[in-house]
C-alpha cells in the first residue's frame, strides 16, 4: 500500500476549472501529480456513464469540476451537472460501491489556489482510501 499512487481522472470545464488549473500551473503552485485532466466544454457535458467508465477501469478517484453556480458559461449547465452528479452518487451508493471516490467541485478561472487545494485534498483522501478494487478485478 505504501507505494500506492492514486490515479485521479479530472473532468474540467473549459471556461473555469481548466483555466483555474492553468493558473495554478503558471503560478507555479505545487500540487500532487495524480490528477489526469480531461477538458470538457461544460461540467454538464459529463455523462454519468463517462464517470462510471473511468471508475470501473480502475480510476481511484474521479473529479468533476466546473464554474461556480451562477457563473456557467452556458448560463445553467452546472445546475444540471449537479443534478446528474447527485443521481450518479445515489446509483453508486445504492449499489454499495465507494461513492466517496467521486467528487464535484466548483473552481473558477481565477482560483488557481483553490484548484491546488482541491487536488491536494482529494489526492490525500483517495490515498487513504487505497486503490480502487476495480483495477484488480478480473471478472469485471
Amino acid at each position: 500500500m505504501e507505494d500506492f499512487e492514486p490515479r485521479i481522472i479530472g473532468f474540467l470545464c473549459n471556461w473555469c476549472s481548466y483555466a483555474g488549473a492553468d493558473l495554478a500551473g503558471t503560478s507555479r503552485l505545487k500540487m500532487p501529480p495524480n490528477l489526469v485532466p480531461i477538458k470538457v466544454m461544460c461540467s454538464s457535458r459529463v455523462d454519468p456513464e463517462m464517470v462510471t467508465d473511468a471508475f470501473l477501469r480502475g480510476a481511484d478517484g474521479v473529479l468533476i469540476a466546473g464554474c461556480h453556480p451562477g457563473d456557467c458559461h452556458y448560463d445553467k449547465g452546472n445546475y444540471y451537472a449537479r443534478r446528474r452528479f447527485a443521481v450518479l452518487k445515489k446509483v453508486v451508493e445504492s449499489l454499495g460501491l465507494e461513492a466517496d471516490r467521486l467528487r464535484l467541485s466548483w473552481i473558477s478561472a481565477s482560483e488557481g489556489a483553490r484548484f491546488q487545494q482541491v487536488v491536494e485534498e482529494f489526492t490525500e483522501k483517495i490515498r487513504k482510501m487505497g486503490p480502487n478494487p476495480t483495477g484488480k478485478e478480473t471478472l469485471l
Binding site: P48, T52, D53, L56, R84, L88, V91, V92, L95, L140
Partner: peptide, 10 residues
C-alpha cells in the same frame, strides 16, 4: 458492469 450501472444512471 459499465452497461448496467450506466443504464441505471440514465
Amino acid at each position: 458492469l459499465l452497461f448496467h450501472i450506466g443504464r441505471m444512471a440514465h
